[in-house]
């Protein structure tokens, strides 16, 4: 009996040691990484994470509704190719295969740009929530990048060039015009001049490129 009690005590001690060890290890890593950021950087990070999570939540709700609808129709024995067709339209618009219309902004900008400057403007717009972007009528897909020339998808863009983006006009304008933001930076570094306006209705064309991969294959 006493031997059993001693073994139980030792087991208990071992378990406590284990739990404390895990707790100790877990209390380390992430705080160290984030605590190296300044308060301003953390605020920016929180703001970006917050809006990204809102978008993820919306997407999750929409996908779950689609799943529910398909399951309901299947129970009722109804034909249901409609969700697949809707998704073809959705993914085609998202990827740049079809034209998109809606609210947004138009930016006409002139200066001694490098391709990297144009890339920076594109990323600021995406960060501001742009849903579709075109430069001088060339739809910006995932792989459309400004290169020396300046060319995008084989098309030489002008100077000034016109950038159109669909998204929240306020969100896009703030992203571009925030203090220390891209437009202020370009004004200071290359004396860029620009005009920026909101549009209630605009159309961004589809890409003219074939986006079918040549070597990449879908993983089943």
């Amino acid at each position: 009996m006493t031997r059993l009690a001693a073994q139980l005590s030792l087991s208990l001690v071992a378990i406590i040691v284990g739990i404390m060890l895990v707790g100790q290890l877990r209390s380390q890593a992430p705080a160290i990484e984030l605590s190296s950021l300044t308060a301003q950087e953390l605020s920016d990070l929180i703001s970006t994470l917050g809006s990204a999570n809102t978008q993820l939540n919306n997407e999750l709700t929409a996908v779950r509704q689609q799943v529910d609808r398909i399951q309901r129709r299947a129970v009722e024995g109804e034909s249901d190719l409609m969700p697949a067709r809707e998704d073809v339209i959705r993914f085609s618009a998202f990827g740049g295969l079809t034209a998109v219309e809606g609210q947004g902004i138009v930016l006409d900008i002139e200066g001694l740009f490098t391709p990297a400057d144009v890339t920076d403007v594109i990323h600021e717009l995406r960060s501001g929530g742009a849903e579709a972007i075109a430069i001088d009528g060339v739809r910006i897909t995932a792989s459309s990048v400004p290169v020396l020339g300046i060319e995008i998808d084989g098309v030489r863009i002008g100077n000034p060039f016109r950038l159109t983006a669909i998204g929240s006009p306020d969100g896009l304008t703030s992203a571009l015009q925030r203090p220390g933001g891209i437009l202020q930076l370009l004004e200071q570094s290359i004396e860029a001049t620009y005009s920026l306006e909101s549009r209630e209705q605009m159309t961004i064309p589809a890409t003219e490129r074939d986006l079918t991969p040549q070597v990449a294959q879908p993983v089943e």
Binding site: G95, Q217, P218
Partner: peptide
């Protein structure tokens, strides 16, 4: 329809891909 959907997902980057 599934073929069209797959092509759209591939173009949009929503499909897992493999290759060299």
């Amino acid at each position: 329809e599934n073929e069209r959907l797959r092509a759209a997902r591939v173009a949009a980057g929503a499909q897992e891909m493999g290759g060299p």
